[in-house]
């Protein structure tokens, strides 16, 4: 039924214990994925978006990892507390994941068809012949020509874009409820990028799978997402539907992201606007709001109190910023467009 929650992530925390302390890669992340939705998690490197996704699959479990919170699927299974065995059965059959670099993601010594068959037969009692037929069908559905011949080829015989399609075919082979795509187009040409995104959308329409799309590229977000989760330094800083995020953003980091994209409808600036400074260390993060050192709009409350992730402007549109809604709407406009001015002083 459309509108059902397929995955509810609440207060997810993931830390890694090391010699020099604990790296808190994911700090209190919550979001929901509804049936048939494409939700995009946006953030820069180190924001915790990939670690969150990998944790949902159970791929970050280790002796040094400290994981808490919950990630509940439609049938009540909590991915965070499930046993390793349970997770192994869920991976690849109920939740699938595709990764960033298709060049290295497939094992080079096995044929592409065999790798798809391997996944199918790991989860379903199906004969080799039937599995192979399914593999051929999947390959042609993701747009690979001459699928019945190509199914016996090795990964290195495919181009980057084709390889990513193979990955998608493999990921969807057991009809999962959720597909997590971790930067699926980052390593590809822009033109191929558009094709792959189109492919994902089309498959969502045909099969009804819900997609969690992880990216750092706002263009990709605008293209396919219906809801956006913005992450910074391990925390969710803003969550909204696509329209309100672009039209009425409520967090300075989001303004910075939006402002740093060159705009076709405006005069070309002499310098591309950036967000001053660099991402903080996850080992010794700043106190209070993590964005404080880089935020031109910070005030005394910011470094001392961590802002709550709450719906401040409208239901379903949450943010983590102490500023009032009116202040936000005033401060976010720089030179007539949404953006973030440069910091002029060195932070204390």
């Amino acid at each position: 039924m459309p509108g059902d929650d397929v995955l509810t992530v609440s207060n997810l925390r993931v830390g890694f214990r090391g010699e020099r302390g604990t790296v808190q890669a994911v700090d209190d992340v919550s979001f929901t994925l509804r049936r048939g939705e494409i939700v995009s998690i946006v953030g820069e490197s180190g924001s915790g978006k990939s670690v969150s996704a990998m944790t949902l699959m159970g791929l970050t479990r280790s002796r040094s990892a400290v994981i808490s919170g919950s990630a509940v699927m439609a049938d009540g299974t909590d991915l965070i507390t499930a046993s390793n065995q349970q997770l192994q059965r869920i991976r690849g059959s109920r939740i699938s994941m595709i990764f960033q670099d298709p060049m290295s993601a497939l094992t080079p010594v096995y044929r592409v068809g065999d790798q798809i068959i391997e996944q199918i037969r790991a989860h379903e009692k199906v004969s080799k012949a039937a599995a192979k037929a399914r593999a051929v069908d999947l390959l042609s559905r993701v747009g690979i020509p001459r699928a019945s011949e190509r199914v016996d080829d090795y990964p290195h015989q495919f181009s980057g874009g084709m390889r990513q399609r193979v990955m998608i075919a493999m990921a969807l082979s057991c009809s999962p409820e959720i597909l997590i795509a971790d930067e699926p187009t980052t390593a590809l040409d822009v033109t191929i990028q558009a094709q792959i995104l189109g492919e994902i959308e089309r498959l969502r329409d045909e099969i009804g799978v819900s997609v969690l799309l992880i990216t750092h590229d706002l263009g990709v977000v605008a293209e396919v997402a219906s809801r956006v989760v913005v992450m910074y330094s391990g925390r969710v800083v803003e969550t909204a539907d696509l329209g309100p995020l672009f039209a009425d953003p409520m967090h300075p980091y989001t303004w910075g992201l939006l402002g740093s994209v060159p705009r076709v409808d405006r005069e070309r600036p002499d310098r591309l606007p950036t967000i001053s400074g660099s991402p903080p260390s996850l080992l010794h993060p700043p106190t209070g709001c993590h964005f404080t050192p880089r935020c031109p709009h910070r005030f005394d409350l910011c470094p001392s109190v961590v802002p709550e992730l709450a719906d401040r402007v409208a239901p379903g549109h949450a943010d983590r910023c102490h500023l009032s809604v009116d202040d936000k709407r005033a401060k976010r406009v720089v030179d007539g467009a949404i953006g973030l001015p440069a910091l002029t002083e060195v932070p204390r």
Partner: peptide, 22 residues
């Protein structure tokens, strides 16, 4: 640490199979 092994795990293959075949 290789990407292909990560993919094999993500496919839900048993740890033994991941070890031996990949």
């Amino acid at each position: 640490d290789a990407d292909s092994v990560r993919t094999a795990r993500a496919k839900g293959l048993s740890p033994t199979r991941v070890l031996l075949k990949h």
